[in-house]
Amino acid sequence: MEILMAFVIGFLFFAAIYLILSKSLLRIIIGTGLLSHGAHMLILTMGGLGSDAPPVLADGVSNSSMADPLPQALILTAIVISFGVTAFFLVLAYRAYQELKTDNIDEMRGEEHDE
């Protein structure tokens, strides 16, 4: 299972980096979304896979069979944060598109004021 997860995470990172390196702003934003998904999967894997009972000490659940609740709490927090940042980024990209009339990151170079 860990091997499979490693491949999934690796693929997510690969796709994210490919998208972030492209020129279109929208693709870049999708890339950052994929990047954070990859990171969340990594937390899940790093917290240890295999124990599947919910992390509540009920009947028939022992310390060893219950899942680690901490990675889940971390992922939830990270998801909420990346939701907020992505939403902000989208709004900004839209406004920038209206203002600068382009979504091509190549055309957003700063002009050099210095001689």
Binding site: S36, A39, H40, L42, I43, T45, M46, G47, L70, P71, L74, A78
Partner: peptide
């Protein structure tokens, strides 16, 4: 986030 996961 990745680094924190590794550290954890």
């Amino acid at each position: 986030v990745i680094t924190v996961a590794m550290l954890y």
